[in-house]
């Protein structure tokens, strides 16, 4: 099934208010943040769609649009097709439901997005920093992140020897 057909199925099920089609770049389905869990559950359990694997989950920061986009790349080992979901959340209060109950792999992938971009996933069982130390300040993959000048007394700048 290609992206347009998948979108039609989703549209028939959830209506225009929840899903819209995004054809800029790779064709994707834009989903309302509050409904992402239901959409994902449907995508997984519907026999014709059967997306049993969350292949990749990443976050992109758009300060100009004032939102953070979470992108889901789904893949179905059973039906052998792929699909892209995009969800935008507000940048100053990035909260959205977690999908870890649908795919277990989301537990770590969401932790990474929380760590690097600061998106809070509601209902996540263990939302802690994963890559950076616990006492780190800020979310580095945001565009306006300022590098700290020192960490526990270790300065992070090196003077040029020249």
């Amino acid at each position: 099934m290609d992206a347009a057909a998948i979108f039609e199925r989703l549209q028939a099920r959830f209506g225009d208010a929840v899903v819209t089609f995004d054809s800029g770049g790779e064709p994707a389905v834009r989903v309302n943040p509050s409904a992402i869990f239901q959409v994902c559950e449907y995508l997984k359990t519907d026999p014709a769609l059967g997306f049993d694997c969350l292949s990749n989950q990443s976050g992109v920061d758009y300060p100009k649009r004032n939102d953070i986009e979470v992108v889901y790349h789904l893949y179905s080992y059973r039906v052998r097709h792929a699909c892209v979901l995009k969800v935008s959340v507000a940048r100053d209060n990035p909260t959205m439901p977690s999908v870890w109950r649908v795919w277990k792999t989301a537990i770590w992938q969401e932790r990474e997005i929380f760590d690097l971009l600061g998106v809070v996933f509601e209902g996540h069982p263990d939302l802690r920093r994963i890559l950076l130390p616990e006492d780190w300040v800020g979310h580095p993959l945001r565009k306006d992140f300022v590098e700290p000048t020192e960490y526990h007394g270790i300065s992070t700048k090196r003077e040029s020897m020249l």
């Binding site: 800029g24 770049g25 790779e26 990749n56 990443s58 992108v71």
Partner: peptide, 21 residues
């Protein structure tokens, strides 16, 4: 051009995904 792309390939540790915007 403006847009995004996602590719998958088989690295030695398996399916590796590259997403670029």
């Amino acid at each position: 051009p403006v847009g995004d792309a996602y590719i998958r390939l088989e690295s030695a540790r398996g399916d590796m995904g590259w997403y670029c915007v």
